[in-house]
Design a protein around this nucleic acid. Structure first.
Length: 421
RNA sequence: GGAAGCGUGGCAGAGCGGCCGAAUGCACCCGCCUUGAAAGCGGGAGACGGGCAACCGUCCGGGGGUUCAAAUCCCUCCGCUUCCGCCA
C-alpha cells in the first residue's frame, strides 16, 4: 500500500505515477474521497463511544429507580454506537479496498511507458563471434545429457523438464556459488516455505493485477510462491524488526519457484527459458526508507558480481513504469546475451519496493528516537535455473563441449562439459 | 484422523463482567552513586488512528454475539502445544 499521508499532501505526484504506468489516475481522487469519508465516520463513532463509556460508569454507580432510568438511555446509546460503528466499518472497508488496489508510486527517474520503454543503463562485455554455427541451449543440454524436456513434458506437461547428470550438477553449482557469495557478503542464508498463506501472498503484491500467474491450492487455501521474495517478506510480517548497527537485514533465500505463465502461450516454448518450476537464490533486504535507493544499487552490484563470475555479456536496463509490477517503485534487470536468439534475456531483476510491501505486511523498525516506522523492502536475483541457458550457449565450443567459467569450476568440479558420444 | 489445552505490551507472566491499557519480573532509556562499569536507588517508557496542541478514541490472536458495560461470558475462524492413532 502506498502512504495515504503522502497522497493527501501531494496527490499530483501519485497521479503522475499512475500516468507513467499507463494506469487510471482518477483513483487518486476516489482514494481521497474515501479517506475523507472514513475520517469523518471514525470521528463520529469516536465521539459516541466516548459518551457511552462515560455513561456506562454512571450506570455502575446508580441504584434503584435512577438506575432503571439510566438503563433505558443506555440502550439507546448502545444502538447509536452500533450504527456509527457499522458506518465506520463500511467506510474503512471501502477505503482499504481502494487503497490496496493502487500500485506503488514509481520512482521519478524510472522511465515512463510500457514493456518496451526501458532505458539501457549500460553494456558489460561483448557478444562473442562464433566461427561455427552455435547450438541453442536445448541442443547443447540434450547432447551433454544435462536437460531432458521430453520426459519433463511426459511427467509434468509442457514447460517442465528434468535436469540430469551434469545439468543437475551445474544448477547446484550455480546456486551454491550464489549462496557462498551471499553468505560472504553478510546475508543470512534461508531455505523457505514455498507454500504460503493468502495474507502473505497478498502482502507482497502478487494477488493484484497478476494473480493469474500464481498457482493456488484451493483445497488448502495456500499459494505456491513464484519467488522466495514472498516468504522472505512474510518472515518479519507484523514485527518491529531490529535493523541492527548496519541498519539493514539481509537474507538470501534458496527455493523452488512456481509460475503458471498464463499469459505467455507460445512464447519461449523451447528449452528451459520459460518454465513452470525452477530454482533460485534471491537476495532480500529490509532497510530504512532513506537507505532504500543505496541498497538498491548494492543489490544490483551483487547481481553483477555474480554475472561476472559466469563470464557472459550482459546489459542492465532501467525497467519502464508500466512493467514494474504492483510493488516496485523502480526495477533494474540484468539481461544476458543469448547467442542463438541474438537477444538479451533477463537473468536477474532487482526491485525497490520502498515501504509498499512493508506497509501491507506491517513490518516496522525503530528509528533513532525509538519510534516505530514502516521499513522498506528490496529484492534481487543471485542465480536461477535460467542462467544455465546463458552459460551453455556462450561457452560452447565447436565440438559441442562447454567450457565451465573459472569461478564455477570449484563448484562444478570440472573445467569442461563433454557431450555424450 | 481422535482428545485436551493455550493465544495478554520487546520478552516472560498476572488478571472477581464496571475502579484494567492492563499487576509483576526481565530487557530498555534518563538521572544519582562510581575513576569507569556492575550492583543498588529514583524516575521514564506500549501500538494505532484523529488533532497545531491540550487531548480524544481504538487495540488483550482475527471476526461475530450476549450486556447499559467484555481481556474476562458465548459462537466461529486462524495459529501454537501436548497425548493417542496413522504414515514416513
Amino acid at each position: 500500500m502506498i502512504d495515504l499521508k503522502a497522497v493527501r499532501e501531494n496527490p499530483e505526484a501519485v497521479r503522475a505515477s499512475q500516468r507513467a504506468r499507463g494506469e487510471d489516475s482518477s483513483v487518486v481522487d476516489a482514494l481521497l474521497a474515501a479517506d475523507e469519508r472514513r475520517r469523518s465516520a471514525v470521528s463520529r463513532a469516536d465521539t459516541l463511544r466516548g459518551e457511552q463509556k462515560a455513561f456506562g460508569k454512571q450506570v455502575g454507580r446508580a441504584r434503584g429507580e435512577e438506575r432503571e432510568a439510566l438503563l433505558v438511555r443506555g440502550k439507546e446509546l448502545a444502538a447509536e454506537v452500533k450504527a456509527a460503528e457499522a458506518e465506520q466499518h463500511a467506510a474503512d472497508a471501502e477505503l482499504t479496498e481502494l487503497h490496496r488496489a493502487v500500485p506503488n508510486v514509481v520512482h521519478p527517474d524510472a522511465p515512463a511507458g510500457g514493456e518496451d520503454d526501458y532505458v539501457v543503463v549500460k553494456h558489460v562485455g561483448t557478444p562473442r563471434e562464433f566461427d561455427f554455427e552455435p547450438l541453442d541451449h536445448l541442443d547443447l543440454g540434450t547432447r551433454l545429457g544435462a536437460i531432458d524436456v521430453e520426459r519433463g513434458a511426459k511427467v509434468g506437461g509442457s514447460r517442465f523438464y528434468f535436469l540430469t547428470g551434469v545439468g543437475a550438477q551445474l544448477e547446484l553449482a550455480l546456486l551454491n556459488m550464489a549462496a557462498a557469495q551471499a553468505t560472504a557478503a553478510g546475508f543470512t542464508l534461508m531455505i523457505t516455505p514455498t507454500l504460503v498463506r493468502p495474507e502473505i501472498m497478498a502482502g507482497t503484491g502478487f494477488l493484484g493485477a497478476h494473480a493469474d500467474e500464481i498457482y493456488r491450492l484451493r483445497d488448502d487455501d495456500l499459494y505456491l510462491v513464484g519467488t522466495s521474495e514472498v516468504p522472505l517478506a512474510g518472515y518479519h510480517a507484523d514485527e518491529i524488526v531490529d535493523l541492527g548497527a548496519e541498519h539493514a537485514r539481509r537474507y538470501a533465500g534458496w527455493s523452488s519457484c512456481y509460475r503458471r505463465e498464463a499469459g505467455s502461450y507460445g512464447r519461449d516454448t523451447r528449452g528451459i527459458i520459460r518454465v513452470h518450476q525452477f530454482n533460485k537464490v534471491e537476495m532480500f533486504s529490509y532497510v530504512r526508507p532513506e537507505d532504500a535507493e543505496a541498497e538498491h544499487l548494492r543489490l544490483l552490484a551483487w547481481e553483477e558480481e555474480m554475472l561476472a563470475k559466469i563470464e557472459v555479456p550482459y546489459r542492465v536496463i532501467d525497467t519502464a513504469a508500466g512493467d514494474l509490477g504492483t510493488s516496485a517503485a523502480r526495477k533494474f534487470d540484468c539481461e544476458a546475451w543469448v547467442p542463438t536468439q541474438a537477444a538479451y534475456r533477463e537473468l536477474t531483476s532487482t526491485s525497490n519496493c520502498t515501504t509498499f510491501q512493508a506497509r501491507r505486511l506491517n513490518i516496522r523498525y525503530r528509528d533513532e528516537n525509538g519510534k516505530p516506522q514502516i521499513a522498506a523492502t528490496l529484492n534481487g536475483t543471485l542465480a536461477t535455473t535460467r542462467w544455465i541457458v546463458a552459460i551453455l550457449e556462450n561457452h560452447q565450443q565447436a565440438d559441442g563441449s562447454v567450457r565451465v567459467p573459472e569461478a564455477l569450476v570449484p563448484f562444478v568440479g570440472t573445467e569442461v562439459f563433454v557431450p555424450r558420444s
